[in-house]
Nucleic acid binder design. Structure first.
Lengths: 352, 352
DNA sequence: AGAAATCGCGGTAACGTTCCCATTGTACGA
DNA sequence: TCGTACAATGGGAACGTTACCGCGATTTCT
């Protein structure tokens, strides 16, 4: 009864009320062995009565485990990264740990600052989508971490999880071919980004397998934004072409921008231009027509990243890269040229 | 030199290296007074040399301040809430504190669990968008908190920040009237939600001021989702009506759903049906036509919520509700009937 | 010049928890 | 009956930091 009424109850308050020592109370609360069943229940009742809640700060101090993980994503406003965050949080919560989510806003300095904050907060580990290129000093992070996203491939010796771009591109290309678009054009990201190279390599491989010369395929690049996609599409439409145009955009935002450019050019999607995207953001559903796309499993990526991070923390030698399979989401932005309607047959002069 | 090379350096390591006591080192690191300038610099150099980083867990234990805030939002995947989170994080970072963001997924049980986690993590305060209705026991939260969102209005004695629905509705209605839509129809949320009542009251007031009988206005309700909006719009179109239809949706998702229903009915937006939404989510930009809407200042709401929470923590008596003004975002989903084109004049029989 | 104030610094306790070791009581086998 | 084993509990110490108190040295005032 020595406690003032305003202080949050500690394990000592619980112990006093249960008439045991704090060691015994701790054992009861931790569910450890070597404790009399009756005593344990008495402690548990005392804990409930006082409204005791374990102080995670103190636990972290003593045990060296804060029970927190860090997640640094480029944009918390982007629904895809939101999915990743949710997956990570749900998985972490299952193991009784929480996730600190930080948004780097594609800014390397901000990213570095966030990592510093995570270190000071003594998180047990971090999941990072590297936006900075100078991550050669990642060895000095001083805390367990895994990378997510395709740019993580620059660091083959580090555990990471991303989507399987090869499989995704194959999925998209197969779908395009099955719909009669055997030689699509491409809108890809800026040259500096590794994801672009991965994407193009997969396209290349697929072409070679089908005995198609990749050199004949039209290609434009731009920023991974709506505006970037719009401008790239504009340039694509300025090129000489006959009949139906089909575009594979490396990112849904760009695909949406491309769709805008098509409309602005007085053309129609999908009857004049077919578009397929890559990401699976919800906005694609509300576009008109709905954006057909290859969806990345954002939530699952978050889940697996946490699991990989746990392995890293426990020093389980699971080092390696995880590639998550993507899936096709069919909506309305792709014309089916494989079963020619009379109308399409008339307009489809450019069909191969 | 007593430290093993694997341990993270503590303030004692810094003190040893600088040849002072840990008290002095602490003073230097805290930037406190009562310390010789030369000594301070020596300590700072020692800290930099050892790579010392303050252990926030220990600080929190000793000072009773964890330097962390909690934020519980309904859906981290929704870009609007992402904006709120970003605003909160940026503002908190300015004051050297970090934000734990949790997504309740509109689930009261999950919400309660998150709040428990926040308490155990000993956050200094929490920002909550209450999804549970049984928040009558919020006095037992046992930690400083503020509410965000319109449903927070149920608790007038609690600090909160939300958007100014009255001003927003007025803005929307004025815009509609100026474009020649003097008697719009409405798609509103389910009856149980307080936001619905707030919305309707504002509409009512605006009508009365304009000498219009609110009773003549058509109205349908549904869930705050795309599907809810789509079905409500379908019902609205089944009603007898003449000429141009104008719809004010209480939420952008519903507006997007309404747009879908219009297309599915073989009608065109905006030439047959005008639609205005409320929220300002990015998806509205990529819809076709672009969704005209009243945008809530999500980021600013996050910023103000943190500031309000700081006041609460410091026991500054700033209790009260903050209403953030919204702004009109004009895109293409609204027909302008105020300057009748020949074509519109022919079709505009229903115009008042 | 002596007293008082100030400055700079060190020592110690405390925050709440868990871990390790010591101690007690009881049951069991020889 | 006594020693041993084991179960159940209590008593400290430690995690890294900051707050408080006190002490010596220097400066300032009367």
């Amino acid at each position: 009864m020595s406690s003032s009424r305003n202080r949050r109850p500690t394990i000592i308050d619980v112990a006093e009320r249960a008439g045991v020592s704090k060691s015994t109370a701790a054992r009861a609360l931790a569910g450890s062995s070597n404790i009399n069943e009756e005593t344990r229940e008495r402690v548990l009742r005392a804990a409930a009565a006082t409204g005791y809640e374990r102080n995670h700060l103190a636990v972290g101090m003593r045990s060296g485990r804060s029970g927190m993980l860090g997640l640094v994503i480029p944009d918390i406003t982007n629904p895809f990264w939101g999915e990743v965050a949710r997956g990570a949080q749900d998985r972490a919560a299952e193991s009784g740990t929480s996730v600190l989510v930080f948004s780097s806003d594609w800014d390397a300095a901000k990213e570095a600052a966030h990592i510093g904050t995570l270190r000071r907060a003594r998180v047990d580990g971090a999941i990072i989508n590297p936006v900075a290129d100078n991550f050669d000093d990642h060895h000095r992070f001083g805390l367990p971490f895994v990378f997510i996203g395709s740019s993580a491939e620059r660091f083959p010796d580090i555990s990471s999880v991303g989507s399987d771009i090869t499989q995704a591109v194959r999925l998209g290309m197969d779908h395009l071919v099955s719909k009669g678009h055997s030689a699509p054009s491409f809108i890809v990201g800026p040259k500096s980004r590794l994801a672009r190279a991965r994407f193009l390599r997969a396209v290349h491989e697929h072409c070679v397998e089908r005995d198609v010369d990749p050199g004949i395929l039209a290609m434009e690049d731009g920023e991974y934004t709506v505006e970037g996609g719009r401008q790239a599409m504009r340039r694509l439409l300025e090129r000489p072409h006959v009949g139906h145009v089909c575009v594979f955009a490396a990112n849904d935002m760009m695909a949406l921008g491309a769709m805008m450019a098509v409309r602005e050019a007085g053309l129609n999607c999908p009857s004049d231009v077919s578009i397929i995207g890559f990401d699976g953001i919800p906005s694609g559903e509300f576009a008109w027509p709905g954006l057909t796309t290859i969806a990345k499993p954002g939530r699952e990526i978050g889940v697996r990243a946490v699991e990989q991070l746990f392995d890293e923390i426990e020093h389980r030698p699971e080092h390696g890269r995880i590639y998550m399979p993507c899936r096709l989401v069919e909506r309305g932005s792709l014309a089916d040229l494989s079963v020619p309607t009379p109308q399409r047959a008339a307009a489809g002069a450019g069909r191969v």
